[in-house]
Nucleic acid binder design. Sequence first.
DNA 1: TACAAAAACAAACTTTTGTTCTAAAAAAAT
DNA 2: ATTTTTTTAGAACAAAAGTTTGTTTTTGTA
Lengths: 200, 200
Amino acid sequence: MKKGDIRLEEIYNYIKTFVDDNGFPPSVREIGEKFAIKSTSTVHYYLEKLRNRGLISQDPNKKRAFSITQTRSPSNYIPLIGNVSAGKGILAVENIEGEFPMPQEIFHGNDLYMLHVEGDSMIDAGIADGDYVIVHSQNIVEIGEIAVVLWQDKATIKRISATVPNLVLHPENKQMTDIIITPEENPSIIGKVIGCVKKF
Amino acid sequence: MKKGDIRLEEIYNYIKTFVDDNGFPPSVREIGEKFAIKSTSTVHYYLEKLRNRGLISQDPNKKRAFSITQTRSPSNYIPLIGNVSAGKGILAVENIEGEFPMPQEIFHGNDLYMLHVEGDSMIDAGIADGDYVIVHSQNIVEIGEIAVVLWQDKATIKRISATVPNLVLHPENKQMTDIIITPEENPSIIGKVIGCVKKF
DNA sequence: TACAAAAACAAACTTTTGTTCTAAAAAAAT
DNA sequence: ATTTTTTTAGAACAAAAGTTTGTTTTTGTA
C-alpha cells in the first residue's frame, strides 16, 4: 500500500465516524484541521480521490453534503416500549425508552415496536427471558401466530390458539398450560411478534 | 394541537427521513421547497422552534450542520459474512455481503460479525434455521460457550463441551449427537456467538 | 369588529464552504 | 543526477447557506 493510500484511508475513516457521531459530514476545513493539513486544496485533492474510487458521493452544487457510498443497510429505528399500560396508547412518547436501529433489510415497515421479554413462557419458540421481541402494532392476528396481549394491565406474549368464544393463549413451554380469557376480562391484542433479538 | 405544531412536526419528520436517506441534513432552502414555503426566513422561524424545543441542535457557525437530538441508540455496523471459507481471513472484504446496523446498547464493541444460520442443530438454544447470529471474532472460547467452528471448509455453530484431546461439539438438539473432531482434522474456532436475531 | 399573536414573505447581508489556479516541496522513478 | 509523479501549500473566488430586518397576511380571540 502506498503512503498516500494510508492517509486516504485515515481520512475516509474519520469521515465515517464523524458522520456517525454528528449526523452530518465534516467540512473540508474541519478535515484539514484534524490531519494538520494547512491547505484546503490538499483536502480537496484527497476528497477527489475518494470520489474517484467511489467511496463517497457528492453533489457538486451542495456544500458540506457528501455521503458515504457503502453497502450499509439503512436503519429502521424501532421504539422500545417500557411500561405497557392500558391508559395511554402504546406508542405514546411517555412510554418510549429509546429508539433502536435495526437493519431495514431484516425488519422493514412502520408501526413496529420492541418489548423486553420477561419470563420463559415462550422458550420453545426461541423467545427467552431478557430477549427483545419486535412487534408489529395490530389488533387482530391469525390463529397460530404469536401475539402481544394486553390483559390485566400487563403485556403478555403468547401464541394464540383460539379467539372465540374465549381467547386462548398457548405458552410455548411444556411446563405451562393454556390460559383461557373470557371476553368479560377485556383482553386486547396489541401486536404480532415478528422477530426477536437475543443476547447470550 | 395547534396548526403550526402540525407543520412543525411534518418538518421535523422530513428532516429525520432526509438525514436517514442522505447522511446529511437538508438546507433551509431545501426544506422550504419541500413545503412550498417561499421565504427562507419562514423556514428559519420553524427551525428555531425546533431548536427551542430541543428537537434539533445546531452549531450557529456551521452551515447545513444540525443534528437530531433524540434518544436514538447509536448504531454498531456489523458485517454479514457470506461465504466462510478457510482461504482468506473471515473479515476479508470479499466475504462481506453487507453491513447491518445493530443497537450499540445491545451489541457493542469491535470485531463482531454476523452469520446466516443453516440448520436446526442449535434449536434448543433458541438458534433456528434462517436466524442471524452475532459473533465475536476470537480463537479461544470457554467450555460451555457457543462457538463458530471452521471445519472441513465449513462454518458450524455448536456448543463446545471439550477441547482436549479432541474438540467436542454439542448440538442443542435432542435428536443429534455430539461431534468429535480430532486435532488431525484441523478444526479452528473463529468466534463466539454472543447474540441472535430471528424473524418469524 | 377590533386587536394581538402567529405565520409567511421578500430582500439584503454575512459567513461558511467547496473549488480553482499557480507554485513549491517531497518522494519516487529513471 | 535528473526527470517525473505525488503531495502540500497559499491565496483568491464564487456559490451555497444561515441570519437579520422589516413588512404583510392570516388566524384566533376578546
